[in-house]
């Protein structure tokens, strides 16, 4: 590691990236453990001194989560039930110290297939804000996450915020994950769901995303379509709904176990939405 920069403004940060490649870091909770065995010689761009990158704001259009907002910030924020799933992810992403240091933007940019934030952002129909010296662009999260540890972020760009549109009517979010233990482990399967409800309690629209069962978390469009106009009910989820998943065998579980657990968690998420 040859150079370390900690600019106080976004302008300085994007100028630094325009000048040459640097690895952006915030909480560092994914960065350092990955470098214990072989620390690459890389220049770092520490984003934690840029106050504008941290915090949650809301307006008529929706919510804006600064990329350097920590999981603890999410837990302590007053947010509507739409974000109950995101809050659950914040509480289970790691122990308190990881919640204090780890950031929403870092979790997305790290692009682990098992990232607890990612399925939530898909369920929330979120977009990312990417800034560079050339300007700012918006990209849906589903287009931002390209594969295992791969995103659409250009080397000269900084992820500055995640935006969530404001739904019409009553909305709720849910997040469930399965790990060998509750914290401190990488998820075997995770499920995030968000639904908007009609006045009579039927589902107006729903988005359901599964994490850790494919290179990037994916939504389940067949199930989402079937839920429209109905009341949330675990019985509505069918094994064929999991067709978009491509789980693998690894040290944490087999593909068939993942598939089985994913269906169970999807059904539990629907039961939770029905409450």
């Amino acid at each position: 590691m040859t150079g370390y920069l900690r600019p106080a403004t976004l302008d300085e940060a994007v100028a630094a990236l325009a000048a040459g490649p640097r690895t952006p870091i915030a909480g560092g909770t994914d960065v350092y453990p990955a470098r214990i065995v072989a620390a690459p010689d890389e220049d770092l761009l520490d984003l934690t001194a840029i106050a504008a990158l941290r915090g949650i704001t809301a307006d008529a259009a929706g919510w804006r989560f600064g990329a350097a907002t920590t999981w603890t910030d999410v837990i302590e924020a007053a947010l509507p039930p739409l974000f109950d799933g995101l809050k659950a992810a914040a509480r289970e992403v790691g122990g308190v110290q990881i919640q204090n240091a780890g950031t929403l933007g870092g979790n997305l940019c790290n692009a682990s297939p098992a990232a607890d934030g990612a399925p939530n952002w898909l369920a929330l129909d979120a977009e990312v804000e990417l800034a560079s010296a050339a300007g700012t662009r918006l990209l849906p999260v589903c287009d931002f996450l390209l594969g295992n540890r791969r995103t659409a972020r250009r080397p000269d760009e900084i992820l500055t915020a995640i935006r969530v549109p404001r739904p019409e009517g009553r909305a709720r979010g849910v997040f469930l994950k399965l790990g060998a233990r509750r914290y401190l482990v990488i998820s075997i399967v995770s499920v995030a769901a968000a639904a908007q409800f009609e006045a009579d309690g039927r589902i107006a629209s729903a988005r359901i995303a599964v994490g850790a069962c494919s290179p990037v978390p994916v939504r389940l469009p067949a199930l989402e379509a079937r839920l429209v106009g109905r009341r949330a009910d675990p019985a509505l989820a069918e094994p064929a709904d999991l067709a978009p998943l491509a789980p693998i065998d690894d040290v944490r579980g087999t593909a068939s176990y993942r598939r089985d657990a994913a269906l169970t968690l999807v059904r539990r998420a629907l039961a939770e939405l029905a409450r």
Binding site: G28, V31, Y32, L44, D46, T48, Q97, I98, N100, A101
Partner: peptide
């Protein structure tokens, strides 16, 4: 675990220079 600006963090995953 130590406290940095009042919050508990893991000091093995924070750079010293970040604590300026």
């Amino acid at each position: 675990v130590v406290h940095v600006n009042g919050a508990s963090v893991k000091s093995c995953t924070m750079l010293a220079v970040q604590c300026e």
